[in-house]
Amino acid sequence: MDALQGSSWLYLYMPIAGIKIFWPGLVLIGFSVGTIGGFFGMGGAWMVTPGLNILGFPMAFAIGTDMAHIAGKSMISTMRHAKFGNVDYRLGFSMLIGTMIGIECGAQLIMYLERLGNVGSVVRWTYVIFLVLIAWMVFYDYFKARKKAKTGQVGEYGATGITWYVKLHKIKIPPMIHFKVAGFTCSLWLPLGVSFVTGALAGFLGIGGGLLRMPALVYLIGCPTHIAVGTDLFEVMLSGLYGAFTYSLKGRIEIVAVFVMLTGAAIGAQIGTVATKYAKGYGIRVAFGIAVVCCMFSVILKEFKFDAIAAVVILGTIGAICLYIMKIMFQGAAQELREKKKAEASLLKV
């Protein structure tokens, strides 16, 4: 970075934080997280905050700026997912209520525990345990589905691994509600209960919750992967806007940086979202599992104060997953355009 100090046009003055920031770095962070968030249906705060910190943002500004950027980025991704029909608004609003109450309970619990003593390590290790559980669930599900596919146990929508949601859908406590886009009917208490639990965990762990909500939507509520991605982004957008407001009130936001990052995120979000069109549900889930494992390693490294290595792990993960998603998108798009051209040519011949 020091080698670039002479190129002053590459640095943008941040009027609130009072520092000069390497703006192509901001665009790159926005682009990468836009791509990954659009593909997995999560905000990705765990990726943005260390990136901003590396660019020279004070931690206090990194979190608020990250929140506002996530809200704007999720809005762009939600708009694209909505066109694909991947957003179930009814499910999103049902879950939002449970999430809000849950997060408040989790946040109150952590505040109570903080008054009792330092709970930082407890929270981090709880986070690690849940990340292990999610990763196990994702990979177990994948291998179970593969095993079923090999033995020919294939249903209407292909082989499925974990089907806990089938049992949960049998709970018939009124009111029963039909989610048209997601394509299932269940008791309203199911999405409310699941979102309450994921919200409480998110509040306890101090995270946005996309990492927990996305697998919960798939495995517990029974949402098809693509609808889970779109619906989760819709929720991230709403909670992100509110988060941006409160962090702005605390004066911990750098609006210029948000705009620069959003510009990069707008392009990334298109790539990530369109890539879901060409990726199979299990492809998305396995890549998500790998991201969860890397997140887990970065948390463990931070716990042992290896902050620099943790940042390398996070940035390396972002780069690798981003390239993987771009490959899916460009290969799929090229294939689709080739097929379209072929179809048009054969029509002309006729």
């Binding site: 705060a45 408040e104 946040a107 407001f245």
Partner: peptide
């Protein structure tokens, strides 16, 4: 809302 924002923020400021 404040609880959500606090939780979503990832830690104390």
């Amino acid at each position: 809302g404040p609880g959500i924002a606090w939780a979503a923020g990832g830690g104390d400021v």
